[in-house]
Deep mutational scan, measured.
Amino acid sequence: SFQYVPVQLQGGAPWGFTLKGGLEHCEPLTVSKIEDGGKAALSQKMRTGDELVNINGTPLYGSRQEALILIKGSFRILKLIVRRRN
Rank of each mutant, 00 (worst) to 15 (best):
F2P: 05
F2R: 04
F2M: 08
F2D: 09
P6V: 14
Q8M: 14
Q8E: 15
L9V: 01
L9Y: 04
Q10M: 14
Q10D: 14
G11R: 06
G11P: 03
G11I: 05
G11D: 05
A13S: 10
A13M: 08
A13H: 11
A13K: 12
A13V: 06
A13P: 10
P14H: 00
P14D: 01
P14E: 02
W15V: 04
W15F: 07
W15R: 02
W15M: 00
W15T: 00
W15I: 11
G16C: 03
G16F: 01
G16V: 02
G16E: 04
G16Y: 00
F17H: 01
F17C: 06
F17M: 00
F17D: 07
L19T: 05
K20H: 10
G21V: 00
G22C: 04
E24N: 11
E24A: 06
H25A: 14
H25V: 13
H25R: 14
C26H: 15
C26E: 14
E27Q: 11
E27H: 08
E27N: 06
E27R: 10
E27G: 08
E27F: 06
L29A: 00
L29Q: 01
L29E: 00
L29Y: 06
L29D: 03
T30W: 05
T30H: 11
T30N: 11
T30Y: 11
T30C: 10
V31D: 00
I34P: 01
E35R: 09
E35H: 10
E35C: 10
D36E: 13
D36C: 10
D36H: 11
D36M: 12
D36R: 11
G38L: 02
K39P: 14
A40Q: 07
A40I: 03
A41M: 10
S43Q: 06
S43A: 09
Q44N: 14
Q44C: 12
Q44K: 12
Q44T: 11
Q44I: 00
K45M: 12
K45S: 11
K45W: 03
M46V: 08
M46F: 07
M46I: 13
R47Y: 09
R47N: 07
T48N: 13
G49K: 02
D50S: 05
D50E: 01
D50T: 03
E51Q: 09
E51Y: 00
N54S: 07
I55A: 02
I55L: 03
N56L: 02
N56Y: 08
N56A: 06
N56R: 01
N56C: 02
T58A: 10
T58R: 12
P59Y: 04
P59S: 12
P59I: 14
L60E: 03
L60F: 06
Y61P: 08
Y61Q: 15
G62I: 04
S63V: 07
R64K: 13
R64G: 07
Q65E: 14
Q65N: 13
Q65F: 06
E66I: 08
A67M: 01
A67W: 05
A67R: 02
A67L: 02
L68I: 10
L68G: 12
I69E: 15
I69Y: 13
L70T: 05
L70G: 05
L70I: 07
I71E: 02
K72L: 07
K72A: 12
K72Q: 13
G73K: 15
G73H: 14
G73R: 14
G73L: 06
G73Y: 12
G73C: 10
S74P: 09
F75K: 15
F75R: 15
F75H: 14
R76D: 15
R76L: 08
R76Q: 14
R76K: 15
I77E: 15
I77S: 15
L78W: 04
K79E: 14
K79L: 04
K79V: 06
L80D: 00
L80E: 00
I81R: 01
V82S: 03
R83I: 05
R84F: 03
R84I: 00
R84W: 04
R84P: 05
R85D: 11
R85L: 07
N86P: 13
N86T: 13
N86M: 14
